[in-house]
């Protein structure tokens, strides 16, 4: 355990001393602040637009950090042969991989938290400015920072932002899975390929529900054809159906989490199927186990 923590902290150090992280973070903060500005374009439902844009920015950039920082972390160790000295130390390879994973996860989560704080301050700033006697922008910003801090500690403190922290927790859960994939691919493939794989899986995961819907459409079509021709459904099911069905089962269902975010935006409440949390953890553990299986057996360059 001590060894995992040591490697995780070292990985975190490596990530936060990486310039790419700050580029991503700056872009994220710009987009989050932009969500407030963009929301002025709408004549109604301003709160929804802010929430939707902010959540998307946090989600996209958290995923970007997981992918861009994550895929090169393990690979760099192999490429630069720093792994040689690590492996010769009295720790298991699995400990090394888990340490890398937790270090990356820590990086992603810390960044999510930073982005969330910016987001909260911005929302409270807009709420403050909406009041008629706000007492100048300096006061408003000061109050907003205070309120954001309070919301961060006790999320239902303010009605307008009560929904944010639960959504952020769900995003963290989602990123847990994405990070596991980044580590998995990084453990046996080059950064460019890992990035492609991870991004593809992330996309497929988010489209998982659409794939399922596509499956249902194809099944309905087959059912109609079967009824018409008096044959079994199996005979009418196209290869596309089987492929889509297979794809829907094999890809991670990240849609389960983004649905929560969408609901939070349009209903101002969060209801997560409790088993989704278990699902997130189980999937992550499975992916990490697979990564360890590969890593344990491989020769390093």
């Amino acid at each position: 355990m001590k060894e995992i923590v040591a490697i995780a902290l070292n990985t975190f150090k490596e990530a936060i001393r990486n310039r790419i992280l700050y580029f991503i973070l700056v872009f994220a903060v710009i987009l989050i602040l932009l969500s407030g500005v963009l929301s002025e374009l709408t004549y109604t439902d301003r709160g929804k637009i802010i929430l939707s844009f902010g959540f998307t920015a946090i989600n996209v950039f958290a995923a970007a950090i997981a992918v861009f920082v994550g895929v090169s972390l393990v690979y760099n160790e192999l490429e630069k042969r720093t792994i040689y000295t690590i492996v010769s130390k009295p720790i298991g390879r699995w400990q090394f991989l888990l340490g890398k994973y937790f270090g990356l996860l820590l990086t992603v989560w810390v960044n999510i938290i930073i982005m969330t704080l910016v987001f909260l301050v911005m929302i409270h700033y807009y709420i403050g400015m909406a009041a008629t006697d706000h007492g100048g922008w300096f006061t408003v910003v000061g109050k907003a920072i205070g309120r954001a801090a309070v919301t961060f500690v006790w999320w239902p403190a303010f009605k307008e932002t009560a929904v944010i922290m639960p959504v952020i927790l769900v995003t963290m859960l989602e990123m847990m899975m994405v990070t596991a994939f980044a580590v998995l691919f990084s453990s046996f493939s080059t950064p460019v390929l890992s990035m492609m794989f991870t991004v593809m899986l992330f996309v497929a995961g988010r489209l998982n529900e659409d794939i399922t819907r596509f499956c249902v459409t194809l099944y309905d079509r087959a059912l109609a054809a079967a009824l018409e021709k008096h044959t079994s459904i199996d005979a009418q099911l196209s290869p596309a159906y089987h492929f889509a069905d297979w794809a829907a089962h094999i890809t991670p269902n990240l849609g389960a989490f983004h649905k929560v975010v969408e609901q939070a935006v349009f209903e101002q409440k969060v209801t997560l199927w409790p088993w989704s949390i278990a699902y997130g953890f189980l999937y992550t553990i499975a992916v990490l186990a697979l990564a360890i299986m590969i890593f344990q057996r491989r020769n390093f360059k």
Partner: peptide
Amino acid sequence: IGYDQFTAHFLW
């Protein structure tokens, strides 16, 4: 890629 709501709001 799943950011449907965001895109909808953007198009709006």
